[in-house]
């Protein structure tokens, strides 16, 4: 009897559509900015905005295409492959800031004097050809590469830079990390650790962002100034993506983030605001 009643109630409720909530899914790099903007808009304008980070950038794009979200947070440019995979979706991406992606290492590697790596060295580390830090001027300790999960924007930007594309990236097996927080906390608590991480998340106490050095060129440090000047190659746009032009709550959220208070949030989290981001930030 009670069950019948419960089913009945469920049926009635199911008929009532949820209020026009905006669902945002995607990148943990973009998340702090959007989450806080959403919290402000919730408190001040009563807008309903749900933010979730399951699956990272590509998870967000998949959710947008499947109709599980109205907005994706994406910490990389939208690619041809995305449009091919979801031909029915009219991807409209709005850049809200830029960010330097860095190779971030643990304190013991940093204090042993490793300050920058060349692309070839990064390849060696990623492919496990370089197994000990002593081979690149670091401590005599094995390299622990915490690889960002596939589908994370960070990982795809890294793969694009290092190998010229996701498909060309060799198959490797490393321990995997998901969110930026997880990457940071694991590097902080592990000796000889390295990961691909937004430079803004390296705290300079237990985690340190390395520069990139090619012979004959000055070291490119992942600083905001270097990204603004286009001197750091591993920079990327931070975007929110909608299917078709943003309308309604999505529009208001975007307007807020692009406005003064929203851009202040971008800066507060260590990212580059649009005014300094050089259009889209000189991504590769």
């Amino acid at each position: 009897m009670r069950r019948t009643f419960a089913l009945l109630v469920a049926g009635v409720l199911a008929g009532v559509p949820a209020a026009a909530a905006l669902r945002v899914i995607g990148s943990t790099t973009v998340n702090p900015v959007v989450s806080e903007a959403a919290a402000i808009l919730r408190a001040e304008a009563g807008l309903e905005i749900q933010v979730d980070t399951a699956g990272g950038s590509s998870g967000g794009i998949a959710a947008l295409a499947d109709g599980r979200a109205e907005m994706a947070m994406v910490s990389r440019p939208i690619k041809v492959a995305d449009r091919q995979r979801f031909p029915g979706v009219d991807f409209r991406s709005t850049t809200i800031g830029a960010d330097a992606l860095a190779l971030v290492v643990s304190a013991d590697v940093w204090s042993a004097g490793v300050r920058c790596l060349s692309r070839e060295q990064v390849r060696g580390l990623y492919e496990r050809r370089i197994a000990r830090w002593s081979e690149v001027g670091g401590p005599d300790r094995q390299v622990v590469f915490f690889n960002k999960e596939p589908g994370r924007g960070t990982w795809e930007v890294f793969a694009d830079w290092l190998y010229g594309g996701v498909e060309a990236t060799p198959m490797v097996s490393h321990p995997e990390v998901g969110s930026n927080e997880e990457a940071r906390s694991k590097v902080a608590s592990t000796r000889g650790a390295i990961t691909q991480l937004s430079a803004a998340w390296a705290d300079g106490v237990r985690t340190f962002a390395l520069g990139l050095c090619e012979t004959g060129l000055p070291v490119a440090h992942p600083t905001r100034a270097a990204v603004a000047a286009g001197d750091y190659p591993l920079s990327r746009p931070l975007t929110v993506v909608t299917d078709g032009p943003p309308v309604g709550v999505a529009r208001r959220l975007i307007d807020f983030v692009l406005g003064g208070r929203g851009q202040a949030l971008v800066t507060r989290h260590g990212y580059l605001p649009l005014s300094q981001a050089n259009g889209e930030g000189g991504h590769p």
């Binding site: 469920a10 409720l13 199911a14 009532v16 559509p17 949820a18 209020a19 909530a21 669902r23 945002v24 989450s35 959403a38 919290a39 919730r42 309903e48 905005i49 749900q50 933010v51 979730d52 980070t53």
Partner: peptide, 15 residues
């Protein structure tokens, strides 16, 4: 979900 939800209004899309 992790954040941004209060009391659900319906069933569909109501985490």
């Amino acid at each position: 979900v992790f954040s941004g939800v209060t009391v659900p209004h319906g069933v569909v899309e109501s985490p």
